[in-house]
Amino acid sequence: MFKTLTLSLGLAMLAGSALAAETEYKLQVDGMTCPFCVATSEKALKKIKGVKAANANFESGVINVCTDGSVNFTDDQLKAMFLDKGFTYRSMTKTETCSASDFTKKNEDTTG
């Protein structure tokens, strides 16, 4: 019983430290109007080493990017990348954990 409890606590601590290493970026990208546009942007982001997931919101033009913490985006890098894709990068915000709700398909946006 004690061994099981110790093991569970250990796993929980490991999981906690792994989650803490994740970093989420919210990128404001203008000009995306269709599923194809979004796919192009998501594909480019997912090719970057350390990016675990990328998910875009059509209406707001925000792309949520979950990284393993090893990625440090810069404005210049993102501006150049989205320029190549045919869109306009505006800004980003960074948080220390990835929010699961930003990467699920059940996140309804009722502004449409």
Partner: peptide, 12 residues
């Protein structure tokens, strides 16, 4: 369709 866009809608 969809009449209301979900955050991750992937087909129009």
């Amino acid at each position: 369709l969809p009449k209301t866009i979900a955050a991750n809608s992937d087909a129009f």
